[in-house]
Computed example of a mutant assay.
Amino acid sequence: MNILFLCTGNSCRSVLSEGTFNHLAPAGLRAISAGSQPTGWLHPRAVALLQRKGISTDGYYSKSWDDLPVTPDIVVTVCSSAAGETCPAYLGPVLRTHWGLDDPSHVTGTDDEIEAAFERTYAIIRARTEAFLALPLAELRHDQAKLKAELDRIGTLLP
């Protein structure tokens, strides 16, 4: 099963999600990330955070949803509708869900305040990923409506 974490720039939240998911997921589940308008670079704080957590970023880069190596089974948008961002709508016959996250790269303040925003975003991503991985996926794959409901519920979880 392939999960696509999608946002606009594919430099921060979607990359944090991809790395965290792939680090925790068992064989047979794989995440990729992409953006509708990729920045072309990964946010250095996102990369540093993943590395501090022991999560490899080898091979990760900011890419367009037009250049996906596989067709996703599930698309998870991670932009924050509360912040007035417009989430891209992936076109294709896939299951879609929204796990809104505020963009820590837009936080201003001291280094500690900015770092705290990145840590908070990571904690939310990790909690949602762990909830996803705890689902009885073999059972839910046969009930798309129930799987969608579970994914939508996970998108509201906070650690």
Rank of each mutant, 00 (worst) to 15 (best):
residue 130 E to F: 01
residue 103 D to T: 12
residue 126 R to S: 09
residue 103 D to V: 12
residue 92 G to Q: 01
residue 135 L to M: 06
residue 104 P to R: 02
residue 86 T to I: 13
residue 98 H to N: 12
residue 105 S to A: 15
residue 83 A to R: 14
residue 124 I to T: 11
residue 128 R to N: 05
residue 110 T to Q: 09
residue 86 T to S: 11
residue 125 I to Y: 04
residue 92 G to Y: 02
residue 125 I to T: 05
residue 118 F to W: 10
residue 108 T to H: 12
residue 99 W to Q: 03
residue 133 L to P: 07
residue 122 Y to L: 03
residue 84 G to E: 07
residue 117 A to M: 05
residue 120 R to K: 14
residue 135 L to A: 00
residue 109 G to Y: 03
residue 118 F to R: 08
residue 98 H to E: 14
residue 81 S to D: 11
residue 112 D to F: 10
residue 114 I to S: 00
residue 130 E to I: 02
residue 117 A to K: 06
residue 130 E to D: 11
residue 103 D to R: 05
residue 84 G to R: 03
residue 125 I to G: 04
residue 108 T to D: 10
residue 105 S to K: 00
residue 87 C to L: 02
residue 94 V to P: 06
residue 117 A to C: 04
residue 121 T to A: 15
residue 97 T to M: 09
residue 133 L to W: 09
residue 88 P to F: 02
residue 100 G to W: 02
residue 98 H to F: 09
residue 94 V to E: 08
residue 133 L to I: 05
residue 121 T to D: 11
residue 83 A to F: 07
residue 104 P to T: 07
residue 102 D to R: 12
residue 96 R to T: 14
residue 131 A to P: 06
residue 121 T to Q: 05
residue 84 G to C: 05
residue 111 D to A: 12
residue 100 G to D: 04
residue 83 A to G: 08
residue 130 E to H: 05
residue 109 G to R: 00
residue 132 F to A: 08
residue 118 F to M: 07
residue 88 P to L: 05
residue 92 G to K: 09
residue 93 P to T: 10
residue 91 L to I: 14
residue 116 A to V: 12
residue 85 E to S: 13
